[in-house]
Design a protein around this nucleic acid. Sequence first.
DNA 1: TCGCTTTCGCTACGAGACGTAGCGTAATGG
DNA 2: CCATTACGCTACGTCTCGTAGCGAAAGCGA
Lengths: 211, 211
Amino acid sequence: MQSRTPATRPGRPRSAAAATAILAATREALVDLGWSKLTLGDVAARAGVAKTTIYRRWPGKNELVVDAVAELFDELELPDRGSLAADIEGVVLQFATILDRPEARSGLMAVVAESTRDEALRERIRESIVERQKRLVLQGRTRAQTRGELPPESDSKDAARTADLVFDVVAGAVVHRTLVSGRPADEEWVRGFTQVLLLGLRGAAALPADP
Amino acid sequence: MQSRTPATRPGRPRSAAAATAILAATREALVDLGWSKLTLGDVAARAGVAKTTIYRRWPGKNELVVDAVAELFDELELPDRGSLAADIEGVVLQFATILDRPEARSGLMAVVAESTRDEALRERIRESIVERQKRLVLQGRTRAQTRGELPPESDSKDAARTADLVFDVVAGAVVHRTLVSGRPADEEWVRGFTQVLLLGLRGAAALPADP
DNA sequence: TCGCTTTCGCTACGAGACGTAGCGTAATGG
DNA sequence: CCATTACGCTACGTCTCGTAGCGAAAGCGA
């Protein structure tokens, strides 16, 4: 049951430097060319490796771009600004900043589009990007409960549903604002958005769970 | 100042049937192949036209797909279900139904991804899809104000901002739920989402506009 | 130190899509 | 009937794809 790298195996090990260079080169190519015009030959040239080296490690362009983009979102963190509203505003602004970078914009949307026809790719995205960042929602809620800003959840199943909803609303709204509407998710917008979201959550928590 | 089709011009007119066939064939190809593997040669063959005919009418694959997908969203309408909450739930469910169709899923996200590097394409998307459907938000608000469910807007600039916010939140959340999280935007989810959104909007309307 | 194994860089290849050009024909309006 | 434009068709050079095969390099264990 060891599918990945049986700890130690014979032969020449894969160069870790090559992986770093390839992912960096992929982001660079995304900036210069965008997803559709990005070719693995070009990435190989930028990274200073052979084209075959990339094909030995990644099945194709989609998976490579997912890994290259996923690293961008790892720098997200939940700041402690004293109140839930301020915390949310802080992390949303961080998210918006990342989406301002061209390698994130074109790369992220393109792989999501491709994942609609490729179940394995969608799983890869969920694992390495979506589920990974959902931690921010959970952290924020816990912290707000500690502060007394949100009531402790009564039903754990209901709590999970709410967390999923919050994540979809936050990520979806920011992405739509930035990439579709094409307007900046600046402080003013984020304030208004956070206000609506928070009032909605507090109001829903005060109501009885609908049967 | 007549850039498009000077009313009447000499020569053989473009076949309207060809345009219909090409757009239908494009959606068909999106279902079978997805965006990345869709080729204009294939579309031409399905539509029963020459490849050059497509190139004479559309600059490239991106613009063609935008037009093909835009038609899908024209069937959206705001149902009158008696209350703002029910109206919103109705139109969101319609939107989710459209996003269930594979030609909408892959096509829409792909062109949005491409538009991050092509300003003209983004404008085309905004015109033929986004702005066109924003009418639903405005209709819904007007109707709710007539019913007395929402206060009339005091500041028109503020009202426009709120409408934009609502559109980004609704469209973004549904798209994220459906395409990224990969879970259905079913009745249960839509109820929870609508509840949060409405409570948030009512609460924000009751507060004084922040200076 | 010597094999064994795997990775790496390089070259080359057929397959397929791209976007364009050129041609003869069809369909309009004046 | 003539000018003008759209259409179908064929052909073309160019590019990218993904793979195969080679010799060399870099680890590990005996």
